[in-house]
């Protein structure tokens, strides 16, 4: 039996994270809800894959940020809210922000991150699994979704995201599936 080395996940800079304590949560929550609802229109199959869990409440907890994100799929009419103190939820998925974004973009494997303890799952395991599988199948690109809502700023934003991705090693966009391995 051979034991294997774990993957190193980039961590959000702690100084920058501290400034997020002053983030105005309500407007950012509204913007994220709009973004997610836009994605829902293009990805109805993702919500079908949630099956019995399409009205669950998912807590997405970036452990290197001072805020948590509550995602309610609401049968294809999703709502997203940010919280400084995590509310009660059906399932909590926690890990570094880079891991959570990398999972969405298909850069990481959820099971591998879970067994290496880079990802924590608590609460309703079936709901968390359904979300993980639904998102993995949807082949989302969060940056492209943000750019689509950015009007004339889309092109400079794209260049900025590309630069940030190169500098940080975080999968900020969707790449070929083995991008980070």
């Amino acid at each position: 039996m051979e034991h294997q080395d774990a993957l190193t996940i980039p961590r959000f800079p702690s100084l920058l994270a501290r400034t997020l304590r002053y983030l105005p949560l309500a407007p950012v929550s509204l913007a994220l809800t709009r973004l997610t609802q836009n994605m829902a229109k293009q990805n109805a199959a993702m919500f079908r894959r949630l099956g019995a869990h399409d009205h669950a409440c998912f807590l997405l907890d970036p452990t290197d940020l001072p805020v948590t994100l509550c995602l309610e799929p609401r049968g294809g009419h999703p709502k997203v809210s940010l919280h400084r103190h995590p509310p009660a939820a059906d399932a909590r998925i926690a890990g570094p922000l880079a891991a959570l974004i990398g999972l969405v973009h298909g850069a990481y494997d959820g099971d591998a991150l879970f067994f290496s303890r880079d990802l924590v799952i608590e609460g309703d395991t079936a709901a968390a699994l359904a979300l993980r599988n639904a998102v993995d199948d949807a082949e989302l690109d969060l940056s492209a979704e943000v750019e689509a809502l950015s009007g004339p700023f889309a092109q400079p934003l794209h260049k900025l995201i590309e630069l940030a991705e190169r500098r940080t090693g975080v999968a900020l966009t969707r790449h070929e599936e083995d991008f980070l391995w």
Partner: peptide, 13 residues
């Protein structure tokens, strides 16, 4: 190979 990180349980046989 580069498969090590993908192994469940972080160990292979």
């Amino acid at each position: 190979g580069m498969l090590a990180r993908l192994s469940e349980g972080q160990a292979v046989t």
